[in-house]
Amino acid sequence: MKNGDFEPRIVGILCNWCSYAGADLAGISRIKYPANIRIIRVMCSGRVEPTFVLKAFAEGADGVLVSGCHPGDCHYGEGNYKAYARKVLIEKLLHQFGIEKERFKLTWVSANEGERFAQIVSEMVSEIKEIGPYRPPRERMRELQPGAGTPPAPGWLAEEELETAVAGGAVAGE
């Protein structure tokens, strides 16, 4: 799947005052960048919770970009510092969940940095194209609804492996 056809889907969560306005400016200035990002507006990057990031990945996002005002420029004073603290912990969590670091970014984009915003998106898209799509675990873990009748697929050995093991004379138990 790591080929040129892969179009990553990136969720952008942007603060209203700086980064969303910066993304607007990219538009006003007609700067072209890849259509892979889908932008969601929050008032402040301080509103962004780890839950949002994990939700995006759980829904199959290939990347998540959180962006706020530059340090010191937060419309609410200090929301972006909180976003930064959470970002550090989110990175650690994602690492444990096996999610590559390229897939999650926190950046600072001001209302006047339309070009920079476009550039950040372009870079992120090409980095994620490089590493390929993200497959959320729920695709592998059969998501069963209560009462769903489908029995789970065999678990620990793939069919072929099973046959090989039996033919090879492995014995159940010791």
Partner: peptide
């Protein structure tokens, strides 16, 4: 209404 408190 920045929502920082809600996020935490």
């Amino acid at each position: 209404g920045c929502g920082t408190c809600a996020a935490s």
